[in-house]
Amino acid sequence: NNDALSPAIRRLLAEWNLDASAIKGTGVGGRLTREDVEKHLAKA
């Protein structure tokens, strides 16, 4: 759900053309954090 994404995370996902549903969020309530996105990018 994009409503739970911060503007910074939305921008990062758009910049790298990533799908938020493909990344497991570790923040409060399962929210994506910058670290989650960076770890996903490191694996790719």
Rank of each mutant, 00 (worst) to 15 (best):
Asn1Gln: 13
Asn1Asp: 15
Asn1Ile: 12
Asn1Ala: 14
Asn2Ile: 13
Asn2Met: 13
Asp3Lys: 10
Asp3Glu: 13
Asp3Phe: 05
Asp3Pro: 10
Asp3Gln: 12
Asp3Ala: 11
Ala4Trp: 15
Ala4Thr: 12
Ala4Arg: 13
Ala4Leu: 14
Ala4Asp: 14
Ala4Gly: 14
Ala4Pro: 12
Ala4His: 14
Leu5Cys: 11
Leu5Arg: 04
Leu5Gly: 04
Leu5Val: 10
Leu5Glu: 05
Leu5Tyr: 06
Leu5Met: 10
Ser6Ala: 08
Ser6Met: 05
Pro7Gln: 13
Pro7His: 11
Pro7Thr: 10
Pro7Glu: 15
Pro7Asp: 15
Ala8Thr: 09
Ala8Glu: 15
Ala8Met: 10
Ala8Phe: 12
Ala8Asn: 06
Ala8Cys: 15
Ala8Asp: 15
Ile9Gly: 00
Ile9Leu: 13
Ile9Lys: 00
Ile9Asp: 00
Ile9Val: 11
Ile9Tyr: 02
Ile9His: 01
Ile9Ser: 00
Ile9Glu: 01
Ile9Pro: 00
Arg10Ile: 13
Arg10Met: 10
Arg10Ser: 06
Arg10Ala: 09
Arg10Leu: 14
Arg10Gln: 11
Arg10Tyr: 06
Arg10Asp: 05
Arg10Glu: 08
Arg11His: 09
Arg11Ile: 08
Leu12Lys: 03
Leu12Pro: 00
Leu12Gly: 00
Leu12Glu: 01
Leu12Tyr: 05
Leu12Asp: 00
Leu12Gln: 03
Leu12His: 01
Leu13Cys: 13
Leu13Trp: 03
Leu13Gln: 01
Leu13Asn: 00
Ala14Tyr: 11
Ala14Thr: 09
Ala14Pro: 01
Glu15Phe: 15
Glu15Lys: 15
Glu15Ile: 15
Glu15Thr: 09
Glu15Tyr: 15
Asn17Lys: 09
Asn17His: 10
Asn17Phe: 06
Leu18Lys: 02
Leu18Ala: 03
Leu18Tyr: 03
Leu18Ser: 02
Leu18Val: 09
Leu18Pro: 00
Asp19Trp: 08
Ala20Leu: 07
Ala20Asn: 02
Ala20Met: 06
Ser21Phe: 09
Ser21Ala: 12
Ser21Thr: 11
Ser21Ile: 06
Ala22Leu: 14
Ala22Lys: 12
Ala22Gln: 14
Ala22Ile: 10
Ala22Thr: 11
Ala22Asn: 11
Ile23Gln: 01
Ile23Ala: 01
Ile23Pro: 01
Ile23Asn: 00
Ile23Tyr: 01
Ile23Val: 07
Lys24Leu: 12
Lys24Ile: 14
Lys24Arg: 10
Lys24Gln: 13
Gly25Arg: 06
Gly25Thr: 05
Gly25Phe: 03
Thr26Trp: 04
Thr26Phe: 03
Thr26Cys: 03
Thr26His: 03
Thr26Lys: 02
Thr26Ile: 04
Thr26Arg: 02
Gly27Glu: 01
Gly27Pro: 02
Gly27Thr: 02
Gly27His: 01
Gly27Ile: 02
Val28Gln: 11
Val28Ala: 12
Val28Tyr: 10
Val28Glu: 14
Val28Leu: 12
Val28Cys: 11
Val28Asn: 08
Gly29Ser: 06
Gly29Lys: 06
Gly29Arg: 07
Gly29Phe: 06
Gly29Gln: 07
Gly30Ile: 03
Arg31Pro: 03
Arg31Glu: 08
Arg31Leu: 12
Arg31Ala: 14
Arg31Asn: 07
Arg31Thr: 14
Arg31Lys: 12
Leu32Met: 05
Leu32Gln: 00
Leu32Phe: 04
Leu32Cys: 05
Thr33Val: 04
Thr33Gly: 01
Thr33Ser: 05
Thr33Met: 05
Thr33Asp: 01
Thr33Pro: 00
Arg34Pro: 06
Arg34Met: 15
Arg34Thr: 09
Glu35Ile: 08
Glu35Ala: 12
Asp36Cys: 02
Asp36His: 01
Asp36Ile: 02
Asp36Ser: 01
Val37Gln: 00
Val37Phe: 03
Glu38Val: 14
Glu38Met: 15
Lys39Leu: 13
Lys39Pro: 02
His40Lys: 03
His40Arg: 03
Leu41Pro: 01
Leu41Ala: 06
Leu41Gly: 03
Leu41Ile: 15
Leu41His: 12
Leu41Met: 08
Ala42Cys: 14
Ala42Ile: 10
Ala42Met: 12
Ala42His: 09
Lys43Ile: 13
Lys43His: 10
Lys43Trp: 13
Lys43Asn: 12
Lys43Met: 15
Ala44Thr: 14
Ala44Cys: 13
Ala44Lys: 12
Ala44Arg: 13
Ala44Ser: 12
Ala44Gly: 09
